[in-house]
Design a binder for these strands. Structure first.
Lengths: 156, 156
DNA sequence: ACCGGTGAGTAGGAAATCCAAACTCACCAT
DNA sequence: ATGGTGAGTTTGGATTTCCTACTCACCGGT
């Protein structure tokens, strides 16, 4: 799992090293929906139990999930998202919206999320500073470390 | 890659089936930065060449990338994002911001993205209808198909 | 006490993937 | 002729994943 060659330093790569393995983001989906028990996860995700156990260990270790005891006598645990885990929910929402748009262009979406404003949630990524929706042409990459060669719109 | 058991229908899972394999999103990162040539990708990502070739084929097939000829006589290709591919850029930005916040709490970010408003881009996911930043407590999941049991805040 | 059921995993070997390095093929430069 | 580059493919071995079955602890009914 270490560097095969010398990939460049990148927070995207580092984040994916934590949550980019198969099923990890689906675990987060379930846990955000409140389905945090092992057998629920197995059923809803369809992952092998051993892989799931491994993912859960890593996600707890990365402080994305916490393991909560919900029954003392037969020790039973439930996984819940930490604040850091909840901050990944926007990633899930954006992925879901993309799939809804590009994979099922018909209206057979398997789930709809409603916002507290009583409209269906259509997530839009905006710039915190100006509030505008972000589009590719408005972005300029500014590498902070050497090794980042960018051929496109790059500031000096 | 088919259903191992009966995972529930989900656009997150379907999208991850396209871009969730190892390196796929890093390929998209490079391509969005303008580094679309094979050897650049190998160097910048650090992936084995055969795996990269497989990923590129799948991403082209999924209409996330296109293969463009940039030199006739020695046939040379370059990969570029399609409109659908560009719509995944917000996912990358959100992952990057998460990593910057939670993995490197210090200020040694490897890259900063600047928005056309001349401020550093801090991506925020908002609701298209009301414009508010999305937070977990404001969301209600509304399953559209059977098989979705949600224990948390679910509308009837 | 016994039987079946549930929840949370572990064990084991087959199947699929991944990895690194070497190789190909087509072209250009010296 | 030799060397170099770009875009991959091949090869063979190391890792992971997958899936079924098993364990262990407990509970509920009879």
């Amino acid at each position: 799992m270490a560097a095969p060659k010398d990939p460049r330093p990148c927070s995207i790569a580092d984040t994916l090293a934590l949550v980019g393995e198969k099923y990890s983001l689906l675990v987060l989906r379930e846990v955000c929906l409140g389905n945090g028990r092992f057998d629920q996860l197995v059923r809803n995700i369809g992952a092998p139990r051993d892989v799931l156990a491994t993912r859960l260990r890593r996600l707890v270790e990365a402080d994305i999930l916490t393991k909560r005891l919900y029954s003392e006598r037969p020790q039973r645990f439930e996984y819940r998202p930490t604040p850091a885990g909840l901050e990944l929910e926007p990633v899930l929402l954006t992925l879901m919206a993309w799939g809804d748009r590009h994979i099922r262009q018909d209206d057979d979406r398997p789930m709809v999320v409603e916002h507290s404003c009583h409209h269906e949630l259509i997530p839009v990524v905006t710039c915190a500073a100006c509030g505008e929706a972000v589009s590719h042409e408005d972005l300029t990459a500014r590498p902070q470390s050497p090794g980042w060669t960018v051929t496109g719109r790059t500031a000096a």
